[in-house]
Each structure stands twice: as structure tokens, then as C-alpha cells.
């Protein structure tokens, strides 16, 4: 046990070193813009850049739209499958896990070919259409996380009993969804939402290939042309990711406990 503990500390120390170094390195580098002293110049330069503001706003809006559409798509489906179509669950789960297997670049390549200006659904023909296509792409990317979060949340509550109780009280379908199911899986939905936010905000491939002015391509552009600003942006991006995860932690404190799984 003593030897075990020594090795545990050794692994942990190595792990901490590996994960801390890039963060410290980036932070240190981001403050070296002014020669000889540490300063926050790189941050001011980034924040003052109108393109930063524009692309960041764009990506935030994109993330919010993705979350809304994702929730509207996933929550009723997961609920319905649990309630009425339990036999379909494995297939749906399989579909929602596909985006982890099919590289995003392949999916977006398909979009470009399938929904171009000369196709039956020329989404890429207009800016609005491309935005919608990009947002759908993000919904696809977030599907594995969103579906899992919601399905786990639904498992923690007894969907059938809740529904039947609500029905016996005369509630309609929309009321059940909005007043009964959603509040009960809210924590799960929020967890999925924050994760989605973290994924979408810095996403590069889809936005770059669909040619939208999102934060990811802006990051790449700055990285190719500047020295210190990228480090500052990396720190900011890390802070945003951290914030999203912290929010997940905070909201999951309020989660209903899942029934213990039999072994």
C-alpha cells in the first residue's frame, strides 16, 4: 500500500507537470508582448480588435442557437423513445454516437457537396442558409453529448409514472413536456448546453470550410500572423472552457440522483 501510494503520487505529479506546463507557458508567453516586462498588452490588443468582437459575438450566437435547436430536437425525442419506443433506443444511441466516429471534416465536406447552390436544397447559396447549415452541423457535433446528458437525466426520473400522473391530472402533451419533463431534466440539459457551448465557441473546421466569420477561423488567422496575441487568445479560450465546465459542476449539484444501476 505504501509503495502504491508512492507510485500514485509520482503519476499524479507527472500528470500535473504535463498539464500545467503548457498552461503556464502560454500564460507567461501571452504577457511578454512588451519587451522586458510582463504586461497585459496582448490581451488589450486582442480585446480591442473589432474582428475579435465580431467573430466572438457570431460564435456565441451560433452556440446559443445550436443549444436551442439541439434541446428542441433531443429532449422530446429522448423522452418519446423512453416512453413509447424503448426498442428503438439502441438504434438512436448508435446514430447519436456516429459523430464521434465520422470525422467532422467528412460531414462538412458532405454538406458542401450536398447543399451547394446547384443542389435541391441550396443552403450554401445565401448567408442565412449557410448559417443555418453551420448551426445544424454544430447540432450534429454536439449530438453525442446532448443526447447522453438528456438520456441520463431521463433515467434518473421515472418518465412513465410522471407522464401518467400528469395525464391523470388532465395535462396535455405540451404541458407535460414543458411543465413536467423539462424541469426534471433541466440540470442534464444545462450540462449538455454548457458542453455544447464549449465545443462550438472555438470550432474551426466547419466554420472555415463553410466560410463563416466565426471565432475559430479568426483564432487561426491571428495564429498565422501574430506572435503574442494567439497566446492571449488561448488563455481566454481556456478560461471560457473552464467556465463552462465549472457551470456544469455547479448545476449538477442540483441534479436528481440516478437510481443505482444493478451490476
Amino acid at each position: 500500500m505504501k509503495a502504491n501510494r508512492f507510485w500514485s503520487w509520482a503519476f499524479l505529479a507527472l500528470g500535473v507537470l504535463y498539464f500545467a506546463l503548457p498552461l503556464i507557458g502560454t500564460f507567461e508567453f501571452s504577457m511578454k508582448m512588451r519587451r522586458g516586462v510582463y504586461s497585459l498588452d496582448a490581451y488589450w490588443a486582442v480585446l480591442a480588435d473589432p474582428r475579435f468582437q465580431a467573430t466572438f459575438t457570431y460564435s456565441v450566437m451560433m452556440a446559443l442557437a445550436t443549444i436551442v435547436v439541439g434541446v428542441l430536437l433531443v429532449v422530446p425525442t429522448a423522452y418519446w423513445v423512453r416512453l413509447k419506443l424503448p426498442g428503438w433506443r439502441p438504434y438512436l444511441e448508435f446514430v447519436t454516437l456516429l459523430p464521434l466516429v465520422i470525422p467532422p471534416i467528412v460531414i462538412v465536406f458532405g454538406y458542401i457537396r450536398l447543399y451547394n447552390t446547384s443542389s435541391w436544397l441550396p443552403l450554401t447559396g445565401t448567408a442565412l442558409g449557410t448559417n443555418i447549415l453551420l448551426m445544424f452541423g454544430y447540432v450534429v457535433l454536439s449530438l453525442p453529448y446532448m443526447y447522453r446528458a438528456v438520456d441520463t437525466g431521463l433515467r434518473a426520473i421515472d418518465v412513465r409514472t410522471l407522464t401518467e400522473a400528469a395525464e391523470s391530472l388532465g395535462a396535455g402533451w405540451l404541458t407535460i413536456m414543458w411543465r413536467v419533463i423539462l424541469p426534471n431534466v433541466l440540470v442534464a440539459v444545462l450540462s449538455g448546453a454548457f458542453l455544447t457551448f464549449a465545443i462550438v465557441i472555438g470550432e474551426f473546421v466547419l466554420a472555415a470550410l463553410l466560410n463563416r466569420p466565426a471565432f475559430g477561423p479568426y483564432l487561426q488567422l491571428i495564429g498565422a500572423n501574430r506572435a503574442y496575441e494567439p497566446a492571449a487568445l488561448a488563455v481566454i479560450a481556456f478560461a471560457i472552457t473552464w467556465g463552462c465546465m465549472a457551470l456544469i459542476q455547479v448545476v449538477s449539484r442540483f441534479a436528481p440522483r440516478a437510481p443505482t444501476q444493478p451490476h
Partner: peptide, 27 residues
């Protein structure tokens, strides 16, 4: 918690971080 953050800290910013650390002028 950190694993949750780091597993989602990918893409362009991660490249910046490693350039700033292990690049030619990295820490």
C-alpha cells in the same frame, strides 16, 4: 473537473498553447 476542461480544450487554442510552450521560443 480539470479532465472535463482539458478534454474539451482542443483545436486552435491548444496549438497556440503548445507553440508557446514547446515552440522555438516556448517556455
Amino acid at each position: 473537473t480539470f479532465s472535463g476542461v482539458a478534454s474539451n480544450f482542443a483545436g486552435v487554442p491548444l496549438a497556440f498553447a503548445f507553440l508557446a510552450t514547446f515552440g522555438r521560443l516556448g517556455l
